[in-house]
Design a protein around this nucleic acid. Structure first.
Lengths: 205, 205, 205, 205
DNA sequence: AATGAATGAGCCTTCATTCAT
DNA sequence: TATGAATGAAGGCTCATTCAT
């Protein structure tokens, strides 16, 4: 079971991903050459291309690792039998939590996804869409059950939430003043303040 | 007010900026060559380098046009003698409004600012910082006056607001279902719901 | 009027073609790098790719120059109002003569045409086919007029003639013992000996 | 025959030769990677390099198999006590016959022999030269005995014959309209028509 | 002001070959 | 014998930039 839990990526492929991730995050996809990556990894061009068809595929893998993870978490939240407010809370908190695990992935994701080649881009876009729609569904459900304010437009509200949380890739730092959990709680507070009806605020939360 | 005075949008420099803006937005800074730009403009390499020292400077100019504009608007809002909620509203609405004017600039800004060369990057960062701090100041003021919830952490709340609005560069479309003004109102509603104390909600808004 | 007559290819494109031609002939298409070509030409990679989309296009141009020339000559022969034996003679002699002009082109052509990319290959194949069919047509005409032996199979005879002449790219040398005209006469003699009926041999030739 | 002692055509070395032969014929020596070959063979890089020192040696072996065979056949023809016309016929027919056995070898031979490394190239060139000289010798003998036309230049005539026959690697197809034997007869007819004196045509053939 | 041919450093990628297992 | 991960030199090509005209 190479890596993950142990945090020790022994095999080359993992090592290339880890290394390039941090390089991409700092210098951007176009600011890092394959040469730089392999030098930093202590491997060779051939070693790189033995594991990845192209630099582009590496970019895809980085995207996919993160989006797949976050999608899974959201699906678990959705599947839970809980109130919309609880589900929203679970989604937000799980999403925020991936910033601890996958901050570099996310940065690269938002910074560079436009440079994915079509074949890869399509695969990623499908997953992004799924995620978005799960959030929309929770908002819709909340409105229907009368716990979320009826005047909320589903899509723009959803995108606002996504924006608020996503944006943290620009400023969140692991060793910052607040833990990721505290930040998650603040987001949940801000968001539920916006969504819940006055009625629901009393019972919920 | 750059250029504007002369009122001649057909002059080459403007045309290069406009063209490259749209190309950058669609294909990314690294997905567009100087050659493509000059071909699309109907000019030549020489024409380009007569007006810009480098492709990098062009990226800077695009950044600067937008950030300068939005900073000016925010300063006007701050300078107004109004309540924090009003100021916040003015800032949000003016910010949202620039998406109509400067959507491509903003997209390029968020997508590519990491590729600015140091000399340009410093100039841009200073202005971004100013903008952020104006928002923090309004939140702080609102808390001190007791109209914003005292438990709000200034910085994270500020970044949440910025994230919510900024993110619209990913999805806002000029010819979408809602006008920019309607979207602005929704943002203001969501944000003020989050910020205002129950007390203030009654009087304000 | 760059080059040709004067034999002085002053402009870069001509110079690249000439140089690479001789390099390809000696070392083969795969045995010559673009770097070698530009070094030999005293130009640069950029200079090369300013004139050719790819190394492959250069190969195509070399093919096309020669095949276009030889096709034109054959069409002139065909168009002439002459006996089949005369036409055959004209075709052979004009074909043989291009070895003086285009020997390197021809060598490269036969050695490397399999490496042409599909788009270029199709264009070339069409012209080759035309040429072949003109020869077949002359043989057919000769048989119908009773001057060529009736038992000759048109296609194999045609391919035999083509093979005999084409093969000289393997051994013909400009400064060899026999001039190109003498070689042409020998080919014509051998071929007409094979084609003509005994009857026709007396009147013809 | 070619199993060398073991007689087992399923042994790896044979399989590599067969496979690469067909790949080379279709895509050219440079259009086929060692990886492609071993994949197609169901073996591995190690398997390949166990049997061949280099990809280049494989090319040599392919050349050698064919040229050795054809040389042997020609030597048998020469050794026979027959008239020059008969010898020429035997040579042509045996040469043509190898197209059935060794068509792919021959295609690769003519297409790629320039890419042989010096050490291999020398070995091959010696055998090619022998073959050529045997044909020249027969023509010379025929002239001396007065059965071939005295005005024929030995070398060019010889090269013409070689060209005519060799060229069939470009168009011969095993399942074509004519059998290899019929094609051989046509070649013999065309060639002897060219070579024989009028006198000899009556008695010979 | 404008042109576009020319430059050349640097990029991504390929592939024959090696070697520990 | 056989495997296939790893190597690294070398190749084709790109593109921001320059400069003579």
């Amino acid at each position: 079971m190479h890596g993950r839990g142990s945090g020790c990526p022994t095999d080359l492929k993992e090592r290339i991903i880890e290394t390039s991730l941090h390089l991409f995050e700092e210098y951007g996809y176009h600011g890092v050459t394959v040469n730089t990556i392999v030098k930093e990894c202590g491997t060779s061009k051939g070693g790189f291309y033995h594991h990845f068809q192209s630099k582009d595929e590496l970019l895809f893998v980085i995207h996919d690792v993160f989006i797949t993870y976050v999608l899974t978490k959201a699906q678990e939240a959705i599947a839970a039998s809980a109130s919309p407010a609880k589900k929203m809370k679970m989604i937000i908190k799980s999403f925020v939590k991936v910033f601890d695990l996958y901050k570099p992935h996310i940065s690269v994701f938002y910074q560079e996804s436009m440079y994915l080649k079509p074949q890869y881009e399509a695969a990623i876009r499908r997953k992004r869409k799924s995620y978005k729609e799960m959030i929309f569904a929770v908002i819709q459900e909340g409105k229907e059950l009368g716990v979320f304010r009826p005047e909320l437009p589903v899509e723009i509200t959803g995108m606002s939430i996504l924006g608020m949380v996503n944006w943290s890739y620009k400023w969140y730092k692991k060793d910052g003043e607040k833990t990721i959990d505290e930040i998650g709680d603040i987001f949940v507070d801000l968001i539920l303040q916006s969504l819940l009806t006055d009625q629901a605020k009393k019972t919920e939360q």
